[in-house]
Write a protein that binds this DNA or RNA. Structure first.
Lengths: 355, 355
DNA sequence: CTGAAAGCGCTTACAG
DNA sequence: CTGAAAGCGCTTACAG
């Protein structure tokens, strides 16, 4: 204890913090500055002399120091957690969003907490509010269908909680929206089938309570109308985004005398249902029936023939949504952020047979 | 300020905490006890007079008080977060585990933080260690394949981190394991096919680096052997748990002169590949070929004919794993916890044709 | 059964 | 550009 030489040679003195266990006090002492200065370095304050900053940074690296998120959170009166709130989309969608969000969160000091909910249950908004308040979340990312619920958005604003809504149309200010433009993808599917020569075209939509379903269906019908093709009500079937509803829809549409030569199903699961119905009825795909789906789920490329479908880069959606959330305070987005879905043409469509 | 009557009548005084914003100090003051006593109530200490406890509880409810997890965590020197660490299983598996874990965590005060990783990358164990240490996690749940990595388990033990491993065989002490018994399910598939009368039976396994693949395959082969049926090497194909590898495997197995009358694919994706190959080769299922899969993925019931497969209640797995983690300190599990998979017979199997 | 003091590891507000 | 004091909302260790 008499030596005045720089310690750390005798490695086990209580003065040398264990890697991964150092605190702001250790770094401050080692650097010969106050902890407030270390705090400034942590928070990238410009009010630190470059030399001091460099020295502190070096020490932080040397001891593998990372500030304790809980202590920081307590002082900041908020946590470094982002909530992912979702109702009941497909597993693939949830997981891809998670991967994307985590891409954006990597090395940011933020972590992702998952929070499923049931938007049909009484008081689900209260549940989310409690979650946000208790965890003092930095913000939440809202996936369809909860993202489409204005009451939830309103409740979050009321408690001053940052959020980003992922939805098929802009329904909030730019900083709080990530738009997926389902309508234009519906139109792309329509134009594709029209350009192949199809004129009698059927549509299987999702449930009306999903905005995506409306957008996809309307985009499809409107685009066909622009090219002079009408889709009469009897060629539209409202499905439930499920395989079974796809089967039922196709059976109904294909039983008609003026049977359609092409069907657009608003998701891949229902498109798979169309395959099954067609197989049962002895209608060959793509020879006698062209099919377009939506989602590009793993299923799509496994069907036989491989399904032409709409692909949305969901991981990008997650990444950008998280990016918006993190920059919401610093650089409030001025222009609406969007990720655009596109058609992936595979083997399920052909020009209609000349009958 | 002169009134000595119980306040709260004039509702807006600074003495009355806003709902959802009360602190331990507010509750203590309102109850006329010290915050330490409130703390005892929060932590279910027996050292509180029933009357006092009741009064504090009432106040907590009235003001919607919930202790701040960050403050609590800081004082406890650990957080109330559970980490879910996974490499790359199917989306459906990940999501079901998440639902299950959250079932168990509900109202426990713990939250779930997701942490994907790449077990093939250099230093992935370090990444997980940093995650655990920085967040001061209460514990982590490990899903295959990372759950099978002894080096990771060792590293977690070294930093004194609670964990539960989900795997197909017991590879750790009871309190830290949730076993899924893939071997017995493989045997069940074997016995089913044998009892239908099949004798020439093919097997498409997963990659050898997955313990589940080995267990399923060996369980299948051993069970057949017990009933006097050999599966020669040329009737075993090592797939990659992917659709394409299922196609390739089936094409090879079905091209042989003594073509099998039944195939067991070690997951549903590969079983779907078998369907595709069979369709291409003009072999009808189940008439000329019986198929059994594994996982009971959504795919299974959408295939035509519906796939007979092994079903593991994955959500239960997640729930029980989380349960183990939460009770690890209090009641260290003495006996190995298991969730058992079972065959779901659908339409893809029939006795072999008498040719 | 209950409480006053000190501390967890950070930050805010203030002062210089 | 830097720091000493007080505080975020809890708990531990100690005392009674």
């Amino acid at each position: 204890m008499t030596a005045k030489t720089p310690a750390a040679k005798t490695s086990r003195t209580p003065k040398v913090p264990v890697p991964g266990k150092a605190t702001i006090n250790d770094i401050a002492r080692l650097a010969g500055v106050s902890k407030k200065t270390v705090s400034r370095v942590i928070n990238d304050s410009p009010l630190v002399k470059p030399d001091t900053r460099a020295k502190v940074h070096a020490l932080m690296r040397e001891y593998g120091y990372a500030p304790d998120p809980q202590a920081r959170g307590l002082a900041f009166r908020r946590s470094f957690l982002i909530g992912l709130v979702f109702d009941n989309p497909t597993a693939q969608y949830i997981v891809n969003i998670q991967y994307g969000v985590l891409d954006a969160l990597r090395d940011s000091g933020y972590e992702l907490v998952v929070h499923p909910c049931d938007s049909k249950s009484e008081g689900y908004v209260d549940g989310i509010r409690r979650f946000v308040q208790q965890q003092k979340l930095h913000g939440v990312i809202l996936i369809p269908r909860v993202s489409e619920d204005e009451a939830l958005a309103e409740a979050l604003r009321a408690i001053d909680c940052r959020y980003v809504r992922i939805a098929s149309v802009a329904m909030d200010e730019p900083g709080r929206m990530l738009v997926t433009h389902d309508r234009s993808a519906g139109a792309e599917a329509a134009n594709y089938l029209e350009s192949l020569g199809h004129r009698r075209i059927g549509l299987i939509t999702g449930p009306k309570r999903y905005r995506s379903s409306i957008e996809r269906g309307e985009g499809f019908v409107d685009a066909l109308a622009k090219r002079g093709i009408q889709v009469p009500p009897e060629r539209i079937y409202e499905g439930g985004y499920t395989f079974e509803s796809g089967v039922a829809g196709a059976e109904q549409l294909l039983a008609r005398p003026d049977r359609p030569t092409a069907i657009f199903a608003c998701n891949d699961e229902m498109a798979a249902g169309v395959y099954k119905a067609a197989q049962r009825m002895g209608i060959s795909i793509p020879g006698e029936l062209s099919v377009v789906g939506y989602d590009d789920s793993p299923l799509a490329s496994q069907l036989w023939p491989a399904l032409s479908t709409i692909r949305l880069p969901v991981r990008d959606v997650g990444r950008q949504a998280a990016g918006l959330l993190l920059t919401q305070d610093a650089a409030p987005a001025a222009v609406m952020t969007a990720v655009t879905p596109h058609l992936v043409a595979r083997d399920s469509c052909l020009p209609p047979q000349a009958v």
